[in-house]
């Protein structure tokens, strides 16, 4: 096969070639000259060595993603040797993690949307079907109970999946939207979220229901009388999402197993370490993700769920009617 044409031990090769190669590389790191001198270009007069710039995203994909996506219109080099941040230097900056993060500075370089990071779960659509637990090769996914808003009753009147959840009852759990509900949704950026997801609701026990006024004992303390219209039914449900991170190997099989679009791997690579094995148990608040991340898919899932619920209730109603008919007969 092809030997290198100069692979012979001789004086020429003793110092001249390797030392020139090394010096060339060092000279290339000089900011302005290094990239512009043709003398320092690629080996045997090749193309520009560092930072051959191309567009990050091709045209039709850019159209699909829309102009707001951080990748659109950004310059990208094969060796990640350039960025738009300080373009005149043409070399990447050292990201001083953990003070700085690549996804904060140059999100277009932090490409992988399908990165297998920490597990994230949208509680609202989890049905505790346990498929993720079965898919996990290491057995690191566990079920746990958490308070969550009954999503099938959270929407406005007239929506197609309205009103098929549980109802507000005395002695049950209720939730109230926080004042900054919209703001939380807006601020929530999954990529940058390195701590527990913010809670959008206040939870409390319904002590007394008196017409349109409900007396609620909030979890944070205090008893209030609030109008019933502000409240939504909540329940303490079994959800997936207690992860033993010491065992998780981030293979993503659980994500693929989930049929409800509620289980997925976030982009977060941080905050998954601890000083003891106990620290590595990530409880439900840590794995929670706000539904706003996948709002469309969550909505689609809810439509499906509402349809099932409706069918179930109709069937039950028909059964009851039949039973009553029979009883009458």
């Amino acid at each position: 096969m092809a030997y290198h044409p100069h692979a012979t031990p001789n004086f020429r090769n003793m110092i001249v070639r390797p030392m020139w190669m090394a010096l060339k590389t060092a000279l290339r790191t000089i900011p302005y000259i290094g990239s512009r001198s043709r003398f320092l270009a690629g080996h045997k007069g090749g193309e520009k060595y560092h930072a051959q710039q191309v567009e990050m995203i091709d045209e039709w994909t850019a159209e699909r993603l829309g102009p707001d996506h951080p990748s659109v219109g950004k310059i990208y080099a094969g060796d990640r040797e350039t960025s738009d941040l300080v373009p005149y230097l043409e070399r990447p900056l050292t990201v001083m993690y953990p003070y700085e993060r690549l996804e904060e500075l140059e999100p277009w370089l932090f490409v992988p949307g399908n990165y297998n990071g920490r597990i994230g779960i949208i509680w609202e659509t989890c049905t505790a079907c346990k498929l993720c637990i079965r898919a996990c090769p290491n057995g690191c996914v566990h079920m746990t109970t958490e308070k969550r808003v009954n999503v099938l009753d959270t929407t406005d009147e007239g929506d197609e999946w309205h009103g098929y959840g549980s109802e507000i009852e005395e002695g049950g759990l209720v939730a109230r939207k926080k004042e900054e509900f919209e703001q939380i949704e807006e601020d929530y950026n999954l990529v940058l979220e390195h701590n527990d997801a913010p809670q959008q609701y206040d939870f409390g026990d319904l002590i007394k229901l008196d017409g349109d006024v409900a007396t609620v004992r909030w979890e944070t303390g205090g008893v209030d009388e609030v109008p019933l219209a502000d409240l939504q039914p909540a329940e303490e449900d079994i959800v997936s999402g207690r992860i033993d991170n010491g065992r998780c190997m981030f293979c993503g099989l659980c994500m693929e197993a989930c049929p409800f679009e509620s289980f997925f791997m976030t982009n977060e690579y941080d905050g998954m370490s601890g000083y003891s094995r106990q620290d590595l148990w990530m409880d439900a608040p840590r794995t929670r993700v706000l539904p706003v991340v996948h709002q469309e898919r969550v909505d689609a899932e809810l439509v499906k769920r509402a349809k099932q619920e409706r069918g179930k209730r109709e069937k039950r109603a028909a059964k009851a009617a039949k039973a009553s008919e029979q009883a009458e007969a």
Binding site: F11, N13, P18, M21, G42, H43, G46, G78
Partner: peptide, 22 residues
């Protein structure tokens, strides 16, 4: 882009290694 860049650069390893007597 990356593969072409790599094909360019592999010549430099050859310059560094094959053309080094040591």
């Amino acid at each position: 882009t990356k593969i072409n860049l790599f094909l360019n650069r592999i010549q430099e390893y050859e310059a560094m290694l094959d053309e080094s007597t040591v």
